[in-house]
Design a protein around this nucleic acid. Structure first.
Length: 490
DNA sequence: TTTTGAGTTGTTCGA
DNA sequence: GTCGAACAACTCAAA
């Protein structure tokens, strides 16, 4: 007897390998209907930003292609996921719905309700883990609460077993006789109307194959020197896997497994200092999901609630914010980062910290404004990671940076971009500046500026704030916050 | 239960 | 130029 169809609901798991829901669906016995539902309202206020939508479009194209190579295809739907899925299940007389779990607050609420209604209508509803090494609901400290400090969190995790990545060995995915109606991917309108993202394609190859290629390159070229070179923004020293990880085109278990295999000859895991540091970065991604799961209000609100009263600066016309967004702060390392972000949809992690610190501490603008901008412009925009990163930078997060940790843009530039190549790459106005002055052009002698063709305040801005003064003001603001906290507690 | 030690990624100042 | 200490106090994790 041919079994009824099973709906395989793709969400943040756009790959075929290491996809437990897909594997289970293909073993179900009946035809598998792979579906993607584009739901603009799914994330609440956090619907996909423009750069993410660009990525998603190409990922869906790739996923559909690889499904077709196995005799299947991707059915595209649009709208509120719950009724769409309900309708589809009814129309197909599907008896099972499988998916891989998401961990964002809005997804959890939605999926919980869906699981109930679908089960009540007699469906076999199953969810799986494809996205994390350690799912938040399984991790608790000894007093039964969530971890709030990374080191003990990760130490604890590393004592636990990691499930191996699964492989789909079947040549084909069981197809139905007739396919349900599907939108075309183009009809989702994910690509920007203006062609500002054209350049993205020269930097990125969305999709599962692109993810594997990138991982292999990183593991062979860079991972062993990761501990040393990951901080040099002009080097290709980081994995750059973040966008693929966000959309689930690669899973952390695949990374774990690849690192294990690489370490086999030496018998030591992780095999190098670089690999160990890289693995801990994967751990930070896990930790970010852990925190978002247990503190679902943190995308909007500071985890440390006293920070709600932080004396942010005024920016009524949004001019300061705009100078930062456009990379016209007058601090070359900051401007380089912001322009790399705009042009490629990505920014090197070291520079993310520098620009975040600048927004929050030098300009004293709310971290949420930075988070919003990153959300809209990053191809790897991820609610958990973005939230952790910005709260950490602002000092209001779980593993908060001490209040006095204020990045000095010139020092950071000179330390991590010593010859200025990163700045020259992204800030062409400064491309002829010598290394000695490129991170502080306002201090350069006039003849140096003349020779380099730099006219401050004309073709490159004067610094919008003075570092020493801004630093002092930020420290004073933190002091005020502390004063307020003491008053409140008294 | 109480105590103790530690906490991703910095900067500045003064010896 | 280099180096270590100071920069707060607090919360969390674990002994």
């Amino acid at each position: 007897m041919p079994a009824a169809p099973v709906i395989l609901w793709f969400r943040r798991d756009l790959r075929l390998q290491d996809n437990p829901a897909l594997l289970a669906a293909n073993e179900w016995g009946g035809p598998v209907i792979p579906v993607y539902i584009h739901d603009e309202s799914a994330g609440g206020p956090w619907s996909a930003g423009a750069a993410s939508r660009w990525w998603l479009h190409h990922s869906l194209v790739k996923l559909d292609e690889s499904l077709r190579e196995r005799g299947s295809r991707l059915v595209i739907k649009s709208g509120d996921a719950a009724p769409v899925l309900d309708q589809l299940q009814h129309d197909l007389k599907a008896e099972a719905v499988f998916w891989n779990r998401c961990y964002e607050p809005a997804s959890i609420t939605r999926d919980r309700a869906l699981k109930r209604t679908l089960s009540e209508s007699g469906c076999d509803v199953r969810s799986f883990n494809s996205a994390l090494l350690f799912e938040p609901q399984t991790i608790k400290n000894k007093s039964g609460g969530p971890f709030q400090v990374f080191t003990p969190y990760w130490r604890h995790c590393l004592t636990l077993p990691v499930e191996p990545a699964t492989k789909i060995t079947a040549a084909n995915i069981c197809a139905p006789k007739t396919w349900p109606a599907s939108l075309k991917i183009d009809e989702l309108g994910l690509l920007p109307r203006l062609n500002w993202a054209d350049d993205f394609a020269t930097h990125w190859q969305p999709g599962e194959a692109g993810a594997q290629a990138r991982m292999r390159k990183f593991l062979s070229d860079s991972v062993d020197s990761y501990d040393k070179e990951r901080n040099i923004p002009e080097y290709d020293g980081t994995s750059r896997l973040s966008p693929w990880l966000h959309f689930g085109e690669i899973g952390p278990r695949q990374i774990w497994q690849a690192l294990r295999e690489k370490s086999k000859s030496s018998g030591v895991f992780p095999a190098s200092a670089g690999a160990k540091v890289f693995l801990s970065e994967v751990g930070w991604r896990e930790f970010a999901h852990h925190l978002l799961y247990y503190f679902p209000h943190t995308p909007e609100e500071p985890l440390r609630s006293d920070f709600a009263k932080f004396p942010w600066a005024k920016d009524p016309k949004g001019e300061k914010l705009q100078s930062w967004q456009r990379g016209r702060t007058g601090y070359p390392i900051v401007d380089a980062g912001m322009r790399q972000l705009w042009q490629t949809g990505w920014m090197h992690n070291r520079v993310r910290m520098i620009v975040a610190s600048f927004l929050v501490k030098h300009l004293r603008l709310p971290w949420q404004q930075g988070a919003d901008w990153f959300w809209d412009t990053l191809v790897d925009a991820d609610l958990a990671n973005n939230t952790l990163g910005w709260q950490w930078s602002a000092g209001c997060g779980a593993d908060a940076a001490p209040y006095f940790r204020i990045f000095a843009p010139v020092t950071q530039g000179e330390r991590f971009d010593a010859n200025g190549d990163y700045v020259r790459h992204w800030v062409p106005e400064l491309s002829r500046m010598p290394a000695k002055w490129i991170h502080q052009p306002w201090n350069a002698p006039n003849e140096v500026l003349d020779t380099a063709g730099v006219r401050l305040g004309d073709n490159y801005p004067q610094p919008m704030v003075d570092h020493a003064a801004a630093r002092a003001e930020a420290l004073a603001a933190f002091k005020q916050l502390r004063g307020a906290a003491i008053e409140r507690d008294a």
